[in-house]
Design a protein around this nucleic acid. Structure first.
Lengths: 268, 268
DNA sequence: CGTATAATG
DNA sequence: CATTCTACG
């Protein structure tokens, strides 16, 4: 049996809904969809998105109005759901939600974006520090219970030179700082998670999942791969296909990010 | 010789420019156009509006960005121009500018809108008090120099029951309060100015010049007459025609106000 | 450059 | 209900 998972940063779900997200959702073959940057209370969303027919939805809006916000949609009813990862600072910031499906925990993550030299970069670093501890916990718990874990979302870090178009020009920019890249390496090497899309496509540049709205970034494919599906090794081995659903044109986009979709040959 | 004067609150000239103001300006037969709620610095405007060919422009933006702002466009070069009416509180608020043409002073006025029970209503009242003194001054100066005066603009007050659709329901609303109506009466009776459009159309309901964007106000013609041309008696007697340039449909509008145009059989 | 809020009208 | 501003990304 196959299980298809998509993650996408929608950059404002109300705006995305008007531009094409609803059509995308109606057409997708995914079994689980992880959303980031919902930027709305569920009550502010049209009903067909708040409670889509055939889906179970978990909404984790931020306390601050119009900011962040993650969600998970799954065709199966989750066994359990959880908002936040046990952080006093970040649990009401709309950056983490998880659901348990049979044998599998799926997370929707929106890691803070930073800006070098500002408080926002310090916040990003605090999040990274706390979140790595949680990832280790999650891995341990999963090993004990025999579950797999899949952390989907916008991690706001490109790992390697192949993960963004102009890596040289961006080495001092938040999102490709040496310390951020090293942190992701720890996620893989110390915590033992696997970058699923990179594992399937070891040699491709990208595939990018985010293009700035500024300038001609999209048309030039001057993008970044910052949206990941990060899995425990047992699940990563089941991944049989991955693709980025890049829009056909600038105007066909409904977000500055594109959906990242992976097909798993699941045991459950 | 005829002289045509238009006054219109554009509700954001940058937005209006995109929606049809530019076309309107290119087509108008007015010799003088008074604008209110420009809501932009002249530098933020497209050149064909900032310095329209064949026109002389006077811009009086507010110190607060994106607020108020009045302007005057005239085909003739003004002999003199003035921004503000000598008020410490209001001279940088983008609510008053005047030009002198031969034998005639034209004012573009944007009287503050209020809200009962708030500081904004007190501000409106302070403006009214100061402005009436200025109107008396202006009248006296004009009499001495033998000039006529025309005060065009958004006065944010409907004078009589005929000046708005549902006067009963609006008696406690700012814009139709007894004290505001009484103040306008003083402008006419004590200061000796004449409501030119009402003089030409003594019995018509309206003609309204503002319709809320909310609900079906425009389609139901549920409007207010709050944009006036208020003239010294000698000029008022020369008025030979007046009309409100109401848009053909809701979608054809480029402001929530419509231009109020008067044709004067001028001596000069 | 685009999505949100907030204040204003 | 529309236009702006500001914050954020």
């Amino acid at each position: 049996m196959l299980r298809v998972v998509t993650t996408v940063n929608v950059n404002g779900l109300r705006a995305a809904a008007k531009k094409g997200f609803s059509a995308w959702l109606a057409a997708t073959e995914a079994d689980v969809v992880c959303l980031q940057e919902v930027r709305a209370e569920p009550e502010q969303l049209p009903a067909e998105i708040r409670e889509p027919e055939g889906w179970h939805a978990v909404w984790a809006p931020a306390a601050a109005k119009g900011r962040a916000g993650v969600a998970l949609l799954s065709r199966q009813r989750p066994e359990r759901q959880r908002i936040g990862f046990g952080s006093a600072e970040f649990d009401t910031s709309g950056r983490y939600a998880e659901i348990d499906l049979p044998g599998l925990t799926v997370v929707s993550l929106y890691l803070p974006s930073g800006e070098v030299g500002t408080e926002r970069q310090e916040e990003k670093e605090r999040f990274m520090k706390e979140f790595l501890v949680h990832l280790l916990d999650l891995r341990t718990q999963a090993a004990v219970t025999g579950r797999e874990v899949l952390v989907c979302g916008d991690w706001n870090i490109a790992h390697r030179e192949a993960d963004l178009k102009n890596w040289r020009a961006n080495q001092k920019l938040s999102g490709f700082l040496p310390e951020e890249r090293a942190w992701l390496t720890r996620v893989f090497d110390e915590a033992g998670y696997v970058d699923v899309v990179r594992r399937l496509h070891p040699d491709t540049p990208g595939p990018y999942s985010w293009w700035s709205y500024r300038g001609k970034a999209f048309d030039n494919d001057s993008g970044w791969r910052i949206d990941y599906q990060i899995a425990t090794p047992g699940l990563a081995e089941q991944a049989v296909g991955a693709r980025v659903e890049r829009a056909a044109s600038y105007d066909a986009r409904w977000s500055d990010h594109a959906p990242v979709t992976v097909t798993y040959a699941a045991q459950a």
